[in-house]
């Protein structure tokens, strides 16, 4: 039970990042390898802002809120910039060249962070959050976990409503299917792609700040592992599928927590990947995967 609670908490962070992977893949068929690094930048942004405000005597809730919002805004804009500069010019080129560009962006973000923040670990302040806990079915649950889990779910719900029920959301789904046709409907395709990157960046940053607060230690390479797991989550759920990414993220979190708890933390990633491969072999498009309609 304890593992389940911990797994769900961490899984909700994965899910937020996985959503970015899945949305961007859905819309331009790009596995955005730099996405995990946006999460890392988010964590560092939150840390920086917290550092600035810790000197003031503003109430803790306000400080947290500000750092979260600043991180989300900065990373959202960073994602948009990445799209404009590195990806948009290559949208009509081969898919592998844009993939390599994404790898380049990832490398640039990691090494940029290395230059700015150094190679060591930085630590989030530990005295900000309440430490109160309660018992649930024999497991200790902290209010922090509840709060973070709720916030993640809320963000995911907002995103889902946006994609399913707004005109821009419909346009996103449409242009994932046929860009030129979407243009002919009056959709500003480049603009919608930018919005997608913005949303992906915002969610990744939220995840980064929460992760920083939860584990307290952050590092310029933290985006790599996160990216790997979140991408796995997106594929597990069926890449391109939004509810799939949410469920996939939570599943990976829980799976990993159990694997680390019952077997060994060294093998947790092996177990996660083994399960992923098994799922794909049985159901090649992931749990909620789109059925590929092919006319011949």
């Amino acid at each position: 039970m304890q593992y389940l609670i911990n797994g769900l908490t961490i899984g909700s962070f994965y899910a937020l990042v996985a959503l970015g992977y899945t949305m961007i893949y859905g819309i331009i068929r790009l596995i955005n390898f730099a996405h995990g690094d946006l999460f890392m930048v988010g964590a560092f942004m939150g840390w920086t802002v917290l550092g600035v405000f810790s000197a003031t005597h503003a109430p803790v809730a306000v400080v947290l809120m500000i750092s979260l919002l600043v991180a989300m805004a900065v990373v959202g804009l960073l994602a948009v910039g990445m799209d404009r500069i590195a990806y948009q010019p290559l949208l009509r080129a081969s898919r592998l060249s844009i993939l390599i560009t994404a790898l380049g962006v990832s490398l640039a973000l990691e090494n940029g962070a290395l230059i700015l923040f150094g190679a060591g670990f930085d630590t989030y302040p530990t005295n900000l959050l309440p430490t109160t806990t309660f018992l649930l079915g024999g497991a200790t649950v902290s209010w922090v976990q509840v709060g973070m889990f709720t916030l993640s779910l809320l963000l995911m719900l907002l995103l889902y409503l946006f994609v399913q029920h707004t005109a821009v959301g419909t346009a996103m789904r449409a242009l994932s299917f046929d860009q030129d046709a979407a243009r002919l409907m009056g959709v500003n395709v480049e603009g919608v792609i930018m919005i997608t990157f913005l949303l992906g960046g915002v969610l990744a940053a939220a995840s980064g700040v929460m992760m920083g607060l939860y584990y307290t230690q952050i590092n310029f390479l933290m985006g790599f592992l996160m990216g790997l797991r979140a991408f796995t989550a997106a594929v597990l759920g069926g890449i391109g599928n939004i509810p799939g990414a949410m469920v996939g993220g939570l599943l990976i979190g829980v799976l990993q927590s159990f694997a680390a708890g019952y077997i060994s933390s060294q093998w947790q990633d092996v177990i996660v990947f083994a399960v992923l491969i098994l799922v794909l072999v049985v159901k090649p498009t992931g749990i909620f995967g789109e059925r590929v309609v092919e006319r011949m």
Partner: peptide
Amino acid sequence: NWRLFVFALGLIALMLLRPQG
């Protein structure tokens, strides 16, 4: 320290200039 950062930027630039390789 800047080595890999510059390499990454170079990689991006090369792909933008020559998407076919």
